[in-house]
Computed example of a mutant assay.
Amino acid sequence: MFMGEFHHTIDTKNRLIVPAKFREALGTEFVLTRGMDNCIFGYPLSEWEQLEEKLKQLPLAKKDARAFVRFFYSAAVQCTPDKQGRIMIPQVLSTHASLEKECVLIGVSNRIEIWSQEKWASFSEEAEENFDDIAENMLDFDF
């Protein structure tokens, strides 16, 4: 399980340090891809394989399903951290997430997310302001 918030800087070669706590759970190889809300999702291979099985079940005849799968897979990349715990973020992903310098890595249950500091601050502020409403709406999901 992934949880917590870590702040790191992406260097000029698009390398980013993955916190040791996350590296342990991600394993020696993991997958990054486009995430929702303009962040990057990172999955351990075991989680990626489970997600892949679910995506294979989406109906090919549905336009939205095809579009989602294309968008999700087209930017997916397998990563292996170097000896310093850094990963190379491909340009397509760093552009998608607007990564420039300051980044935030967060743990979200079965995945990590990589955010630009600016986008994470904006998201966090809005979520905090609306937390009571969000929590109340979670009742719709039998939470």
Rank of each mutant, 00 (worst) to 15 (best):
R70Q: 03
P59E: 13
E129W: 03
K101A: 09
P19K: 10
L51N: 06
L99E: 07
E47K: 12
S109K: 08
A127W: 00
I112R: 06
Q50H: 10
Y73K: 06
P90Q: 07
L51V: 05
E52I: 05
G107C: 05
A61N: 11
L26F: 12
E52F: 13
D82V: 08
E125H: 12
A121L: 14
Q57H: 08
E47T: 15
F68V: 03
A20N: 13
S122E: 05
E100L: 07
K63I: 02
K101Q: 07
Q91M: 12
A20C: 07
C79E: 04
Q57K: 13
E102N: 09
S46K: 15
W120P: 01
E129P: 01
F41K: 06
L105E: 01
K101C: 02
A76R: 09
K21I: 12
V77L: 03
F71I: 13
K54P: 06
T80S: 09
L60D: 10
V108L: 13
F22E: 06
I114A: 05
F22D: 03
G107E: 12
L32N: 10
R70T: 03
E128F: 14
E113D: 03
A127V: 14
S74F: 10
E47A: 14
F123Q: 01
E100I: 08
G85H: 09
F22T: 04
E49R: 14
F123W: 04
A121R: 12
R66M: 06
A65T: 01
F22C: 05
S124W: 00
S46I: 12
L45H: 05
E53K: 15
C79D: 06
Q91G: 09
R66V: 04
L26V: 08
H96N: 09
F68L: 10
G85R: 08
K119S: 03
S122T: 02
L55F: 14
Y73E: 07
I106L: 03
Y73N: 09
Q84H: 09
R34T: 11
P44C: 06
I112T: 06
D64P: 02
V104T: 09
R66L: 07
K119F: 00
I87F: 04
W115H: 03
I87A: 07
V77H: 11
A20W: 06
F72I: 02
G42K: 06
E129I: 13
G107K: 08
F123P: 00
R34H: 07
P81K: 11
L45W: 02
W48N: 07
V69R: 04
L51A: 04
P90E: 04
K83L: 09
N14R: 15
L26K: 14
S98G: 00
E49Y: 05
E29F: 09
V69P: 02
G35Q: 02
G42D: 11
H96D: 10
L32A: 11
P59K: 15
L26G: 07
A76Q: 10
W48D: 08
P19N: 12
S74Q: 08
V77G: 06
V104L: 12
E126Y: 02
L45M: 15
P44Y: 09
E47L: 00
G27I: 05
V92T: 08
S109F: 07
A121Y: 04
F30E: 08
L105I: 13
A65W: 00
W120R: 01
A127Q: 07
S94Y: 01
R111D: 00
R86P: 08
